[in-house]
Design a protein around this nucleic acid. Sequence first.
DNA 1: TTAATTCCTATAAATTCGATAGAAATTATA
DNA 2: TATAATTTCTATCGAATTTATAGGAATTAA
Lengths: 156, 156
Amino acid sequence: MISKKTKYAINALVYLARENKGTDPIQISKIAESENIPRKFLEAILLDLRNAGILSSRKGKTGGYYLHKSPAEINVADIMRLFDGPIALLPCVTYMYYERCDECKDEATCGIRSVFMDVRNETVNMLKTATLAEIMLRSGKLEREKKPGKEKKKKK
Amino acid sequence: MISKKTKYAINALVYLARENKGTDPIQISKIAESENIPRKFLEAILLDLRNAGILSSRKGKTGGYYLHKSPAEINVADIMRLFDGPIALLPCVTYMYYERCDECKDEATCGIRSVFMDVRNETVNMLKTATLAEIMLRSGKLEREKKPGKEKKKKK
DNA sequence: TTAATTCCTATAAATTCGATAGAAATTATA
DNA sequence: TATAATTTCTATCGAATTTATAGGAATTAA
């Protein structure tokens, strides 16, 4: 399971991607209220995102947060790594934070490692594809499926 | 990351699958020593595996543990679920232990949920395929690749 | 009866998670 | 220049989880 921090972060980012039509930054309290995130907790999260170069901020009155990159450049894999650490399920199959399993006999021939290596690769691929842009696209699609509107369906 | 419990469990199971040529059960201490697992900790793990119907045991002198199912019927997904709970990364995309995200507005149109649903499906598929038999097969393959023996290579 | 084992219950230290409190620094604007 | 609204920083805290360990009861072969 991902942590609440990561979940809150993704929700906040999607909100910012959606709402940021104008150029004005959006305040913490507005995001917190809209996304049902504890105010003070969100504060720390946004700060981390800013220090990671994903968000920018303006201080003082009329201050707030806004995306530092385009929604297509921000992906879930990076957010998860920032708050929860490696995506891999075993320390011996991470790229960045590799650590040997102390109980392991021979890593090179470990069948367990081989399995979890495949899982990591597949998962990272999927989560890298999951950008804010992609997430918004999916919501849109789901909404259109939900209420079959008056527009002609192109599919099928 | 999976817990040490799960990692130890998988290692112990693979060991049992490999070693259990004869019919005699294998003792906790032997597994613990061979796989570098704290004795008392392993005790609890094996008990859980037994209660889950994956291992059987014999008590008293000459007692020990052995597989209750064939290596092809024991998969990593089940082991992970037993010790670490759901494989899904969000509570709203598990099959067995579904729980609504309290901060969520509309689950049916949630783009985040859609992404994590895909990830869960793919991961579960891979981990179900990862049986003890499959893990042993992979080790064998890796060993053959490591020391290119005298046998003719069939591949390429 | 003894020795060797699994089984059971209780506990404990260390770490992580989710969150809050309070005040300092910054900035627009009246 | 003063004020109000905001981000930023530091510190702390309780609860849950993880990773074990201790000690003895129950079981069984010899």
